[in-house]
Structure formats: C-alpha cells, structure tokens
Nucleic acid binder design. Structure first.
Lengths: 226, 226
DNA sequence: TTCGAAACATGATGGCCGTCATATTTAAAA
DNA sequence: TTTTAAATATGACGGCCATCATGTTTCGAA
C-alpha cells in the first residue's frame, strides 16, 4: 500500500452491486467494518508474483489488470477488473503465493479485506461463500473459453473479439496496441496491421488512441471464426 | 446413466482421500448416504454441452476426459480426471448448462450426488465449502497456466510437457496420438513427428502405444521452453 | 477368424504471423 | 519549453506447423 489508508463507506459504494463479495446487506455491513481502502496511481503495482497473499482486494473505482510474464518475456493479460471486481482471491484461497502481477491501469481505489476477517465472513455467512464460488466458476469458464479461443482462432479474429470485449466492459477506455495485443495473445505489430485493415474496410474508426466501432455486426462476424 | 445404479460404500473407497469433496469423515458419511454410484464403459459419454447439470460426479475409479469442441471442429481436452476427481461442478455452481463434454476414457465408476443434497452438505459443513473452493482455485490456476503455456510454447515443448504430465498423473495409461494432440493443443501428425524425433534422440522409447521416458531430465528441459 | 474402421506413419505444400529493422509521432517528464 | 522514452506505423523475411494426401498397421467387433 503506497498511500495512507482511507475510510470510505461501503454503504455509499456503487461497486458493491456488481461485486461477488458483497452479496447481501448483512455481508456489506461486516465488510464495511473490516475493510481498508487504499489508492493506486495509474501504472502502480498492487501485488507481484511470488508474494504471499494476506488478504483480498475489491475494486471500488478504476481499472486493474492481472498479468503473467511467461518464460520468454511475453506478458499476457489474464483478467481485467473494473468496479466490483475482486483481485487476488485465487492465490489466497489456493494457499499459494501470487502467480500473477496486479497492476492499476488507471487511478484506482481498492478495498482491502484481511485474510482472517474474510474467512470469518465466510464462516458466518455460508451463502456468501456459495455466491463467491459461483463467481469463481465463471472466471474458470472465462479462462477455459479464452484459452480455447486463442488456440483456435486467427489473430484477426482474436483482435476483433478483444476490441468488442474491451469496448463493452470498459467503455471510453483507451487502449494501447500493446495492451490489446496482450489481451488478444498476439503482438502490437499484428494489432496495428489488423486495425488498419479493419479501418480500411470501414468497420472501425481510429480517432487517436480511441477505437470507434462503426459496424458492430461485421466485427462480431469476424470474431466468431468464419 | 446407462447402467443400473449400484451401491458401494464410501467407507471402503480409496478415492475419497484425494477428493476435494470428501474433506472430512463427517462429510463422507453424509455423501455416502445420498450418493448413487454408476458405471460407464470406455468411450461412453457422461454428459454433453448444452445439458443442464442436476448434480455432481466424483470419480471412484477409471478415467474421465473433459473436452470442448471448438467452432472449427477441433476438440480440446480441458481436464483429465482420475480417482478422486470431481466432474461437472463448474456448470453446476455457475448455474449454467454444461459447456463441455465429459467422456469416460476407460471403464469408470462414478458417484453421483444430486444438486439438492450437495448444497445441503455445503450448508451444513461450511468448511467443506471452503475446501472445495480451494480445489476450484487450483483448477483455475491450471487453466490459466496451460492457456499461457499453449500460447507461448512451441508444439514440441507442449508435447514434451504433455507426455510428462500424463505419465505422472496416469501411470501405465496408454494414449493415442490424437489424445496427446488434444491435450497439447496440436495435431496428431505433429505429435507423431515430435515423438519420432524424441525417440531418435534417445529420450523416449515407443513400445507400441506406450511411451517410456528414457531421459526424464532432457524431456523436462525441452518442456521448459529454451 | 475375418473384416473394417481407426490409428499410425511420413512426405509435400503453403500461409499465417512473429521477429527484426527503421522512421515518425505522441506524450510525459524534466 | 525542451527532452526523451514510449507508442505508432510499415516493410521484409522466414520458420513453424496445420493441412492434405496416401499407404500401412493395429485392433476391436462381428
């Protein structure tokens, strides 16, 4: 934690409505009393692979990227989390050191819930545990689906899919070619060429670093693999 | 279920010691009373994508493959489960239809626990829920790691990794080139050529369909990417 | 035991796309 | 404002490996 902890109230937090953690008013009340809020500037690291998880992070506002660095130096984005997203739960529950790096993409406010207090919440609220488990299962689905997609689809299809996903989930966010590449499992050069091609076909418009989708249906068709 | 349900006792079941489901003697006792055992012959389908999960399967003996068919007709093996493994939990907990097919690779005995009874177990035994959650998190790790591996590594490296993994986890099991290919994310032809190459280098020996690893260290080096 | 499908085996071909190189533009920091 | 690193942009090259084709062998089922 790089900035002094602050105290915001869960009661006025919008993100709770979409968070797997804040499943009921009762749970929110408890979490409100045990959480610590903290702030990260764009680019700052929240945790790194190898460290031991001591608690769990919930995104209040901002954007967090979970990425791994593979042996050959390439970085891959595993998950991208906006308000309501939970970060660092996998390693915590698996009782392992972190296997990925969590990085704030933009200025981000997080809630930190210490391990001990979190497990107490689960012990007192079994339904919260099941609710969280459902969320984990969806993440597992997401991972397995993206895995298969990236194996089977061509780069242009993955890039089409990427800009659709990023657009839908993080409206108005600007992405570098590198970030899109790490999300789509390819290189910045290939993203470049593909986006240029999409633009030539009249499917998108590139206003600086912002991508405007002109023909959503066509992009979806491209993303769907033939 | 294709064969009449049988009743085996959990008390004499060896698989329980390695199962995420059977976390304590108390839980085992309850599961023993609510489970139904059933048998699948090699090649038989346990469930298919699109169906609604009504319960959960635990492998008592045998081998089960979880695979998805991607849009272009290719099949990918997501997970492989021996005794103690749990199948069908992801869709069940996510409240979704199955996204993958579960197939018995060899003659397999399964325990089936109906949805309602399973959730009752979790309600009565919070610690069993957390234990199961840990197992799911490990599966998530496995999926994300394999995903990155398959993106970054060359076919020969993935094949080296595959034969090590399959050998270590399912000793004495024989694998077809196709099964190895679907596990490693490549084609039977590439598996062929690569195994022939490994054999020429004296790293393995192919006695019919059984692969004998002669130089484990060398294979591990190959699997590790450069 | 016979038969047919599936698995094994190997060669030839071609295209996708990662890599490297280089120039320009943007944006952030000093 | 100046400076400098990062991002954008484009071209050339080449290798990995999927695909197709064809023949042989194995193995399970009738």
């Amino acid at each position: 934690m790089t900035t002094p902890a602050r105290k915001d109230s869960c009661l006025t937090c919008d993100a709770k409505h979409s968070s797997a953690l804040c499943s009921s008013p009762d749970v929110v009340k408890v979490i409100d009393s045990v959480k610590v809020t903290c702030h990260y500037k764009a680019g700052q690291t929240i945790f790194q692979q190898g460290q031991d998880p001591l608690g769990l992070f919930a995104v209040q506002s901002g954007l967090v990227k979970l990425e791994v660095n593979s042996s050959d130096g390439h970085a891959h984005t595993l998950r991208m989390l906006g308000p309501g997203g939970v970060v660092g739960y996998r390693s915590l529950f698996a009782h392992e050191p972190y296997k990925a790096n969590a990085i704030a993409i933009e200025d981000t406010h997080l809630c930190y819930i210490p391990k001990k207090e979190l497990f107490q919440v689960f012990a007192d609220h079994p339904e919260a545990t099941l609710n969280f488990m459902q969320s984990i299962c969806k993440d597992l689905r997401f991972a397995e689906e993206k895995w298969i997609d990236q194996m089977d689809k061509e780069a242009s299809e993955r890039i089409a899919e990427a800009i659709l996903f990023l657009q839908d989930h993080f409206t108005d966010q600007k992405w570098t070619r590198k970030e899109i590449a790490q999300w789509a499992g390819t290189t910045p050069e290939t993203v470049m060429r593909t986006l240029a091609q999409f633009e030539k076909e009249g499917l998108i418009d590139q206003a600086g670093r912002k991508i405007i989708i002109l023909n959503r249906t066509a992009i979806q068709t491209k993303a769907a693999h033939t």
